[in-house]
Every structure is written in C-alpha cells, then in structure tokens.
Nucleic acid binder design. Structure first.
Lengths: 351, 351
DNA sequence: ATGAAAGCGCTAACAC
DNA sequence: GTGTTAGCGCTTTCAT
C-alpha cells in the first residue's frame, strides 16, 4: 500500500523466491524507512501456530526448578520456539486451571509442567485438563498412561546412595529427609529403607527438613540427639547436607571417619563444601531439554501415533570426601552399572 | 453462529453487563459443550495489546539471574501480565538484535534485560534499539539518560565489606575478584581499593576467579602463595568464598581469628557455610519486581512524561562468623547507616 | 438487549 | 512476478 504494492511485502518478508530483486529492494527500503515491523501476532492468528510453548513453573527460587527452566528455554531457542513462562505460587488445583486456560487461549503448541515436586494433587490437574489440548509433559510426576512424564527414579538413586554408605562398612545409617508431603522425599526415604532392609540392618533415626540448609542444621541436631552413635547419614538434599556439615564441623565430628554423609541433587557447589560432599546428581537441565524434545516429537507425529512416553533419566553418584570410594571397587554386577556409574570429582583436600 | 447468536458471545466472554441472563446461560452452555476457547491471539491483534512483557536473560544457570527472573515472573503474574522468556547464550550484539526484533514482532508491551552482568557491549545494544519501541529496563547496567536501569552500587557495597574487615582491625586485606571483564567485578575491586586507600593501607594481593566455587579454590591458593600473612579477605561472590573456605579449613587456617572473610551476593546457604559467611546481600528478586513496576508505570504514563529512572537498590551486610561484628558498634555517622545497616544472622556455632 | 458491518495485520489460493 | 480475494477470530461502532 505504501510505496508500491500490497502483500508482495509478505513474500519479501518470508524470503520467498518469486520476487524480482528490484521489487525486493524497493520493499526493503520502504520497510527500513518506516521502521515497519511485521506482526507475529497476526501471523500466529492466520497460521494457527504460535511457535510458543507454555511452561508452568513453581518455586523457581529453588535451584532445581531454575535449572530445569533454563534447560527448557535453551532447547526451545534451539528449535525456533519461545516460551511463555507462568510462575505459580503453588500447584494447588484452583490455581492451575486458569493458567492452563490462559496458555490454551494463547494457542501454545505444548505445555510443560515444571514444579519442584509433584504430589498427589497432580492427578487432579491431569483430570481437569481439557480433552482438546496440545501435548503436555509433566516433569517429576508419577508415570501415567495418558501423559508423558520425565523424571528420575528417586527410590533407586536413594538406594544407590545408601549402598555407598553400606559399602563403606557403615551400619547405623540415619536419614535426613525432605518434607514427607513431597513424593520425592518419600521415594528417597523408601530407597534408604529398602537398601537397609536388603542389607539386613535396622534403619537409624529419621528426621524431615524442608529442603533448605537451615532446616538441615536443626534436623541433624535432632538426629544426633536421637542417636549420637550413627556412622552414616543419607540426606535428601545437598542444601540440607550443608547444614548437617556445619553442625558436624562445629561439634568436631570427623567426616568421613566418624560419620559418612551422602547428599542428593548434585549442586555444583557440593564439591567445595567442607569436606566435599558425596551426592547423587540429577540431570535437571537435561530434563528440561528432553521435555521440549518430547513436545516437538508429539507435534510432528500428531497423527494418532503413540506419543506418550515415560522417561526416567539416570542419576550419577558423585564421590566426594564426605563419603569416599570404598576400598573394594563398585560391584561389577550392578545392573545399573552404566547409568549409575560413580563419578569421582577432584575431592579437594588442600594442605 | 452455533446455537443462537454471533458475537453476543463476545459480550458474554467479557462479562459485559448488557446481556440478558437467559442468553448468557445459553451461550455459556454452548461454550462448555463445544469446549470452545477464545483466542487470545485474535484478541491481541484487534486490541493491540499483548499483555506480555519480554524478558531477555542470559546465564539463568547463575543463581542471581534465576532469582531475578523469578522476581520478574512473580510481579508480572500479580499485574495480569505474562512473560515471554528468551534465554540467550551470550549478550554479544549480533545475538541480541534478532531477539529484540522477535519480541517487538510479538508486540510485547515492555522489555527487560536480565543478564548476569552488563559490560560495555550494552552500549551497542542500546544504540541498536529501534526508536519506536515499548519501554525497556536494563538490569545491572550503567546508568544512561535514555533508559531506565536498576542495579546496586557495587563499589559502595564493596567498600562497606572492606570497611567491615578494617573495623575488625585487619590490615593485610586481599581480594578474590570476579572476572575483571565484568563491570561488576571491577566495581567491587575498586570499592576494595578505595576503602583501603581511605584507611591509608596498601592493598593485599588480588587474584580473579570466574565466579564459580572451584575457581575460588585455586584463586585463594594463589593469594596465599603471594602473601601467606594476610588477615582479611574480600571475595567477589559467595560461591568463590565457599571455595576459599574449603581451602582455609583444609589448611587449618583459623577463621575468623587468623583470617576474616567477607563474601558478596547473599546466598541463602551462606549462613550454613563452615563457618557461616559474612556477606553483602543483593536484592535480586526485588530488582526483577522493580523492573516490572518501572515498565508498568512507563506504560501508564505514555504521554511524553519522563519515565526514565535510574535506581540503585540498597544492599545489606549480613554478618556471619567468618567476619563477626567488631567490638565497637557500627559507626553512627555512616551516611548509609539505614540502607546499609548490618543484619546479624543466627551465626550458628554448634557444640 | 442483540445483530450487522468493518477491520486488526497477516497469509493462502487463485488469478493475471 | 505480482495483484486480488478471502478469511484467521476476535472487538469495535452503529443499527435495530
């Protein structure tokens, strides 16, 4: 309309080949001059694809969630998608439904749930999801036949952690748990119990914290009060383990000789704790990336093909000084030997 | 069109008053039955407001950026806006321009830059920003007359940290700096130098790390090698301070008696370090929230009113055991006494 | 209280 | 190669 034509402009913008170089230059000049910017909104409307995926996150203040959202954002950018981020105060159902509606209204092409945890409430969310919807991936949720889920096997990983303590000859092994309303906290506790039961040992005391490092301090003190003679401790998060380390150091408890500690999460900083922390690393960013891949695959295959997958990503045992490698090497018969192979960091012990 | 009418539906959806209750119920029933969902895309198109704000972030893997994005998302939700999150690999100019174009094409109503740092390159970004654009806020950037910026006064905060060490009677004060390509790292170094110069002292050795805790280990070892007799250390990030603590603990350096340490950032975990870390807290989430407020205010005032503000948020000295309160209380004449008032955490020292 | 008409800014399907 | 027509799904404005 401006200088010369009407929607030849469209062809220019979309870099179609069927435009004469001359016209093209003309149009481009006009665009430049008028500071014209094509509306992606209108384009989304007519094409019925927004090139957006919706991310429903809660607790981004937690290291894990932030890491996962990062993985999602990265993978989206790499695939030409963008993310609409909805941060929720909580995952209670009444909160979630309007958010999903919002995302649907914006015609996102997929939705990822990235919570710090998934409890039973997720069932309700799943029930309330409208039938007509883009693909959805739940992170850290119980497997279902209806939705793709991506997570780790918390129970096995916790068993692996506990077995590491057992391999060090520890027999009185306590657990500093996460809040037991959280499924992940319960799964980790169950893994701890199972490993002890397999070894024919009684569980040591268990106290729950709230994932944060201050709660590690108080919970560990309660554990010590319950049984000062424990020689092994499995902690549900690295942050709580940090609190336990502070108490142990303050009381002159020698780690790992007197008490060996294994954490959970794989914070990058764990290697610089005093002493460096043995921990289970979760592939948090990978989870996010994989969730995007799942979505894109489902989008591609939108024929009735089966696009529901349940993925459990492998975890790693990162060995630090708080619970070093046992003298006899990891058993070669370990069924998960590959995925769960221990990784030894440069457990730094200066001086 | 369906059951009864055409765009009376619109009135129903927008909860307009001028619809008979009867029709309303009819329409609502039809909506429910057909699983109809209004298109926010079409609405954005016709109303010319997307209710979206664009966030350009880089380095969300860093605690600080994640925290800030969290604050942004929170504040947006609270105001009925949503965020389109673009995560960048880096803030090099060629990368950024297309991202801004993308956001503009999506008709975001504001843009926030949330990088881990802002170097000189930001100038180029600012220069390349098109003239016709929604309001933009830069986080952590140098003040400019053209754009709103929100950050902290790194230099003053670093002076405050160093003065705390001086108040403890320390005279050989070293600095474990961040990477000096970063403006923030340089500002903190300058604050350290200024405080020492004001006190008439020579600066101790300085070595730069990369913000991460492993680099704290090696950099601190270099500092010790350069001058083993230092009695104070100001560290540019809490994570690097964690590395320094590990080395100090490993070598039997008594903290704070032999060496007092002050960090920077205010990680929540710093209180559980061994020993608990004295540090400068930055209001990271607040920065994000404030950025959103800035944007919304600018939106409201879009008359030629002056909407460019330069905000420097106050920081806090959090006193832990690594550099305790000096015997004589903080000088009452401190000009920043209020905003910079030290906060004493329960520096935990068990047993 | 409701319907009809026009248009937001683009692209798809055809003509020319 | 380029212009024309139509329509994406809404919200206006004006009639009724």
């Amino acid at each position: 309309m401006t200088g010369v034509s009407t929607q030849t402009v469209s062809r220019v913008l979309n870099k179609r080949p069927d435009v004469s170089p001359q016209t093209r230059r003309l149009v481009e000049a006009a665009i430049e001059e008028h500071g014209f910017r094509p509306s992606a909104v209108a384009r989304s409307l007519v094409q019925r694809r927004s090139q957006m995926i919706g991310v429903i996150a809660a607790g981004m203040k937690y290291f894990g969630v932030a890491q996962t959202v990062n993985g999602i954002a990265e993978a989206c950018e790499a695939s030409g998608y963008s993310v609409i981020l909805k941060e929720l105060g909580s995952f209670d159902v009444p909160d979630i439904v309007p958010v999903v509606e919002f995302l649907l209204a914006h015609r996102v092409e997929g939705i990822i749930f990235a919570p710090p945890q998934m409890g039973a409430n997720i069932r309700h969310v799943q029930d309330q999801l409208p039938a007509a919807r883009p693909p959805v991936v739940f992170l850290k949720a119980d497997p279902t036949p209806e939705f793709s889920t991506i997570g780790i096997d918390n129970r096995s990983a916790a068993m692996r952690a506990t077995e590491h303590l057992l391999a060090l000859g520890r027999t009185r092994i306590a657990h500093l748990a996460g809040p037991l309303e959280w499924r992940e906290a319960r799964d980790r506790r169950d893994g701890w119990l199972a490993a002890l039961s397999d070894a024919g040992l009684e569980p040591g005391p268990m106290v729950a914290g709230d994932w944060g490092s201050p709660s590690g301090v108080t919970a560990f003190e309660e554990i010590l009060a319950a049984d000062p003679r424990i020689d092994g401790l499995f902690v549900g998060s690295d942050q709580m383990a940090l609190g336990a380390l502070q108490v142990a150091n303050g009381r002159g408890i020698r780690i790992p000789d007197q008490l060996a500690i294994v954490g959970f999460d794989g914070l990058p900083e764990a290697a610089q704790f005093t002493p460096s922390l043995t921990t289970i690393r979760q592939p948090l960013a990978e989870m996010g990336r994989l969730a995007v891949r799942e979505l894109l695959m489902a989008l591609k295959a939108d024929l009735g093909v089966d696009t529901v997958h349940t993925v459990e990503l492998p975890t790693e045992l990162i060995v630090g000084d708080s619970a070093p490698m046992p003298p006899e090497r990891a058993r070669a018969t370990d069924p998960d030997a590959e995925s769960m192979a221990p990784v030894v960091t440069g457990g730094q012990r200066p001086g």
